[in-house]
């Protein structure tokens, strides 16, 4: 770790209303460190929509344009067009959306914008459920997790949607995963995304949620690191949908990750083995592409 590679400037204020230990807050902090002040954030409904502050306050030192839940990518397309028409090609437009606004309701707009190769960054901070509304499952909720809409014995059996692969299939200019536990990696990816002007860029951020995952707030970063170390959330990049780069190889069993979170507390050893199998399978698939 070379801590001094991390830019010193912060474009986020203290006093946002995120829960203690919020991974999404950390994610925003890192993203803006990389992107700097010439950034406009387009924000569909998500935790950050609330966290960014009630009228007339703001938690960020860059402008935020809120938009309807399904329209993060579309509103950004329009904003980008406006800036271009005004001759401002310097400012980075970034959609900052949660997993619901990306994997689910916003997916059509995202797919459309990426197919049009809109010149913007779409960052999805993924906390793996509708946290802002009280922990309902999304298509980003992983297999094994309990949410308020996958409760009790009906915990989620199906896999998490693989959003990066879906976008790679669009032959997106740049797609990458990032984790709040790997600041340098995340900041480098945002810097790279910023530099790849002219096309769509997507960054999928693993942002732990102590509230929704039922774990102690201080474990937020540790858990995020474990997700990477267990290969459950591999850190990698895809350029033009085909050139893959793997940034990290995990070395821990997925159990180490699952056991620390209340949302997985009900899983038997057998269930955890099945999840391990899924992870191994996905990992193998990914490695074939490297």
């Amino acid at each position: 770790m070379k801590p001094f590679d991390i830019p010193q400037n912060d474009y986020m204020y203290s006093g946002h209303v995120g829960c203690p230990g919020c991974g999404a807050a950390i994610a925003m902090k890192f993203a803006l460190k990389a992107l700097g002040e010439k950034t406009i954030i387009v924000m569909p409904a998500c935790c950050w929509g609330v966290m960014s502050g009630s009228h007339p306050q703001t938690a960020l030192k860059v402008p935020i344009l809120h938009t309807a839940f399904a329209s993060g990518a579309a509103a950004a397309s329009g904003l980008r067009a406006a800036l271009d028409m005004r001759g401002d090609t310097e400012t980075t437009v970034m959609t900052w959306a949660g997993d619901g606004g990306t994997f689910d309701i916003g997916f059509q707009a995202l797919s459309g914008a990426v197919e049009r190769n809109e010149d913007f960054i779409y960052a999805c901070y993924d906390n793996e459920a509708y946290m802002n509304t009280g922990v309902q499952r999304s298509s980003a909720t992983p297999a094994g997790a309990r949410t308020t809409t996958t409760p009790g014995k009906d915990w989620k059996r199906t896999r998490k949607k693989n959003i990066v692969e879906a976008l790679a299939a669009h032959r997106i200019t740049y797609a990458a995963t990032a984790s709040i536990a790997f600041p340098e990696d995340m900041i480098l990816k945002f810097k790279k995304a910023k530099s790849l002007k002219g096309g769509s860029r997507f960054i999928h951020i693993f942002a732990s949620c102590p509230t929704g995952w039922r774990m102690p707030s201080e474990m937020s970063v540790k858990i995020a690191r474990l997700a990477v170390r267990t290969n459950l959330f591999p850190l990698y990049e895809v350029e033009e949908g085909v050139r893959y780069t793997l940034n990290y190889t995990g070395d821990r069993p997925v159990k180490d990750y699952l056991k620390l979170q209340g949302r997985f507390a009900h899983l038997t050893d057998q269930d955890m083995d099945a999840i391990q199998k899924m992870v191994d399978e996905d990992w193998k698939q990914l490695q074939k592409k490297i």
Binding site: T67, A70, A73, S77, A82, G112, R116
Partner: peptide
């Protein structure tokens, strides 16, 4: 755009710009 919903969203983004 890929839908009217996005058409208006993009218009909102552009007009805000």
């Amino acid at each position: 755009v890929e839908s009217e919903h996005s058409a208006m969203a993009a218009a909102i983004g552009a007009s805000s710009g």
